[in-house]
C-alpha cells in the first residue's frame, strides 16, 4: 500500500526535481507528483513536499531569493504551518532560509569554489520525522554539490538550534565552513527540514550509497505510525481548504 504521497516543486531552474521524483517513486516505491511554481496551493492528498536542488529562477540576486516570492512558496508556508512535512534539499534549503521557514542563511563556501563530492554526515538527532529510521550519531554518506552551502547564523540562533536539538545533520569533515558543522536543520515544530547534502542521490546501490533511503523511509514510518490508518483518498473533499495535510505524529516530545 502506498503510504505517503510526495509533491516535488518545480521552479524554473530546478534541476534535481527529476532525481527527487525518481528516488521517491522508483527507489522508495511511493508516489510523487510534480508541483508547478505558479500553483497557489498544495493539492489535496500530498503528504510531503520536496523543494529540490537547482538554481531556481537562475539564483540571480541571491540563492533562493526570488523563489521565496513564488506563489507555491506561499502555499508551502501554509502547508507547513498546518503540520505538513517539507524537505528542502540544496537550493531547497536556501529557499527555506530565504522564506524564513528556517533560520540562518547559506553563503558562499569558505573555499569560494563549487564542491561536488560524497561527504560523511553524522545524524545529529533521530528525533524528527526525517531521521527516525537512523540512530543518533550514525554516520551516513551523501553527495554534496553546491557553491553556496556555508551555513551561517547569529550566536543566539545557533544556541537555540543546539538547545532545541534542531541540528539534524552535521558534517564529519566540514567541507564549506558551515557554523557548528551544520549540514541540515529543522524548524521548532520539526516538520520542516533543510539540508545541503543530497539524500536523493544516495538511494540506489548503483550510485554508490543507499544511505539516503533512511531519510525517506523515516518519513514513511512517521505516517505509518499514524492511527487510524489513512482513509482511502476520495477525489471529493480532499481539495477542501479546511482539509489540511495529514500530520506526521511526533515520535517523542523534543526536550
Amino acid at each position: 500500500m502506498k503510504i505517503v504521497k510526495f509533491g516535488v516543486v518545480v521552479f524554473p531552474g530546478s534541476n534535481c526535481d527529476h532525481d527527487a521524483q525518481f528516488s521517491v517513486s522508483a527507489n522508495l516505491g511511493e508516489p510523487a507528483e510534480m508541483l508547478w511554481h505558479r500553483d497557489t496551493k498544495i493539492p489535496g492528498g500530498v503528504d510531503a513536499v520536496i523543494l529540490p536542488g537547482g538554481f531556481s529562477y537562475g539564483d540571480y540576486l541571491r540563492c533562493g531569493a526570488i523563489a521565496k516570492f513564488s506563489p507555491i512558496i506561499s502555499a508551502v508556508k501554509d502547508f507547513a504551518a498546518r503540520g505538513g512535512l517539507v524537505i528542502g534539499i540544496c537550493n531547497g534549503f536556501q529557499i527555506l532560509t530565504e522564506s524564513h521557514l528556517l533560520p540562518g542563511a547559506l553563503v558562499r563556501n569558505s573555499g569560494l569554489k563549487f564542491i561536488c563530492k560524497p561527504v560523511e554526515l553524522s545524524v545529529a538527532t533521530a528525533n524528527t520525522p526525517f531521521t527516525n529510521a537512523y540512530e543518533k550519531g550514525q554516520i551516513v554518506t551523501f553527495p554534496i554539490a553546491h557553491g553556496e552551502g556555508q551555513y551561517t547564523a547569529d550566536q543566539a540562533t545557533l544556541d537555540e538550534l543546539e538547545r532545541e536539538d534542531r541540528i539534524v545533520f552535521r558534517y564529519v569533515d566540514n567541507p564549506n565552513g558551515s557554523m557548528n558543522s551544520i549540514a541540515g536543520i529543522c524548524n521548532r515544530e520539526r516538520n520542516v527540514l533543510g539540508m545541503m547534502p543530497h539524500p536523493e542521490r544516495a538511494t540506489d546501490p548503483l550510485m554508490g550509497s543507499t544511505d539516503g533511503l533512511g531519510l525517506f523511509r523515516s518519513m514513511v514510518a512517521a505516517f505509518a505510525l499514524q492511527k487510524p490508518p489513512p482513509p482511502p483518498r476520495g477525489r471529493s473533499g480532499s481539495d477542501s481548504p479546511n482539509n489540511g495535510p495529514r500530520v506526521a505524529p511526533r515520535l517523542a516530545a523534543h526536550k
Partner: peptide, 27 residues
C-alpha cells in the same frame, strides 16, 4: 578541477571523474 563540477546530478553516474572511463546508466 572535477570537484568543481556537479558530476552526480541526474543520479545516473555509476563511474565518475578520475576513472579510466565514465559510466552513466540509462534509466
Amino acid at each position: 578541477i572535477y570537484e568543481q563540477y556537479d558530476y552526480t546530478v541526474r543520479t545516473n553516474t555509476t563511474l565518475g571523474p578520475g576513472s579510466d572511463a565514465a559510466i552513466v546508466r540509462i534509466k
